[in-house]
């Protein structure tokens, strides 16, 4: 049971964060809504990585490999946005 209990807590946390996302989509508009939903999504992703994907139990090398995946995605977003955010509309 002591193995399952944290998983149930994490699941419950994910569900409440989901509820928060849905609530925010009704309550907030504009940039604030975007920031909130991205923030909540990040927290959810961290929970999944840490508990469901067992990074909590792994050593530095495996954690580094997992972080590399995210880091490379960020490289793509960051440099692609350097184009999209500054492209002229004409």
């Amino acid at each position: 049971m002591h193995v399952v209990r944290p998983l149930i807590f994490v699941w419950a946390a994910l569900m409440s964060l989901l509820a928060l996302t849905i609530a925010a989509s009704f309550a907030l508009t504009g940039p604030l809504s975007l920031v909130t939903s991205m923030g909540v999504a990040t927290v959810k992703a961290v929970l999944v990585y840490w508990f469901f994907m067992h990074l909590r139990e792994e050593g530095g090398l495996i954690r580094l490999a997992a972080i590399a995946g995210i880091a490379w995605l960020m490289i793509f977003f960051f440099l692609a946005l350097a184009d999209y955010a500054t492209r002229s509309s004409s």
Binding site: L79, A82, D83, Y84, A85, T86, R87, S88
Partner: peptide, 16 residues
């Protein structure tokens, strides 16, 4: 970090 050099004349922003 260099892929955008394939897109210099493709309509990518001058900043990128």
């Amino acid at each position: 970090l260099v892929w955008g050099h394939h897109m210099f004349v493709a309509g990518q922003s001058a900043y990128a």
